[in-house]
């Protein structure tokens, strides 16, 4: 499904620049992105602008997307893996209106995918860009609240505390109890927060052919993974990183080895599991019914 927004031109109102941000701001953001690409996993401070949507609702991702968007781009926006969740709908509409670009729900058609909390099941290809919305970019934040201290810890590669947390999980629960926003180490140097992805998606970041950009608007940070970057989830040799696995397939398309949403069907314990990635699920169903 590809739609071009003609409504943008028809709607009267104040004239905004292409993709809302002024060109000076876009250049500032592009400089931060380039720096991020040059130092993979390093959080680059940038002068995040006040956006016409609330902080914490994707202002960082929206600014990154706005800065890299061109008229020929095809944009896909997902939230929780789905194209039709309200915040995804709202952000997609924002870019249709302010940039008049084409949008899509198909992962393979998109040149830019902006996401909150998921990486599509369909592997991303070279030339595609995925933009992550990040609430808290600092993986050390809940161990050390002070920015001055966490920056020093990154500079000196003082990451022992990160493993203390994992150690405590295993001592207490027998497992590493981090299930999302699972910290990774980038190219053996920076520990990075992958945004609140379920850890199921962590391996998809590793040596991905796509460019991966992370924007945190409220916290004013941008970071990046250039294509084919090493991204390792933190773990212990004798407690290696593992992803979630589901016992049953998607109830709708029958897919296995994908991330599933649990849907409660009644108040007596009835539930079913369906694909979190709506495009993936829809494509499989379309292929199944000739």
């Amino acid at each position: 499904m590809r739609t071009t927004a003609m409504t943008a031109a028809a709607t009267p109102g104040p004239a905004y620049n292409f993709a809302y941000l002024d060109e000076g701001t876009k250049r500032m953001i592009r400089r931060a992105i380039l720096k991020g690409i040059a130092v993979p996993g390093y959080q680059v401070p940038f002068a995040s602008r006040e956006m016409p949507m609330p902080y914490g609702w994707g202002t960082g991702g929206v600014q990154v997307t706005a800065a890299i968007l061109g008229p020929a781009d095809v944009l896909k926006v997902i939230d929780q893996g789905a194209d039709d969740t309200t915040n995804a709908v709202s952000i997609r509409a924002f870019f249709r209106k302010t940039a008049g670009i084409a949008t899509t729900t198909r992962t393979v058609e998109a040149t830019i995918v902006q996401t909150r909390h998921r990486i599509p099941e369909t592997p991303l290809a070279a030339g595609q860009i995925i933009v992550y919305q990040v609430p808290i970019p600092e993986p050390l934040r809940f161990l050390e609240p002070r920015e001055t201290e966490t920056r020093t810890m990154h500079a000196l590669e003082e990451y022992g505390l990160m493993h203390v947390k994992l150690y405590e999980d295993i001592a207490r629960h027998g497992h590493i109890a981090t299930t999302y926003a699972y910290p990774v180490k980038v190219e053996g140097r920076y520990v990075m927060d992958p945004s609140p992805l379920p850890k199921f998606d962590n391996p998809k970041m590793h040596r991905s052919p796509a460019l991966q950009l992370f924007g945190a608007g409220r916290e004013k940070r941008i970071y990046a993974l250039p294509p084919y970057t090493d991204v390792r989830s933190l773990d212990f040799e004798d407690h290696p990183f593992t992803v979630q696995s589901f016992t049953e397939p998607c109830a709708v398309c029958g897919a296995r080895n994908v991330y599933l949403d649990e849907v409660v069907t009644d108040d007596r314990g009835g539930r079913m599991f369906v694909c979190s990635d709506t495009d993936h699920c829809g494509t499989r169903r379309a292929e199944a019914t000739p």
């Binding site: 969740t85 915040n87 909390h117 998921r118 609140p196 409220r218 991330y259 599933l260 649990e262 979190s276």
Partner: peptide
């Protein structure tokens, strides 16, 4: 913004 963003869907992480 950040307090109210908690009402956005988080079901992937909650799962």
């Amino acid at each position: 913004g950040f307090v109210e963003h908690l009402k956005l869907p988080h079901y992937v992480d909650f799962q």
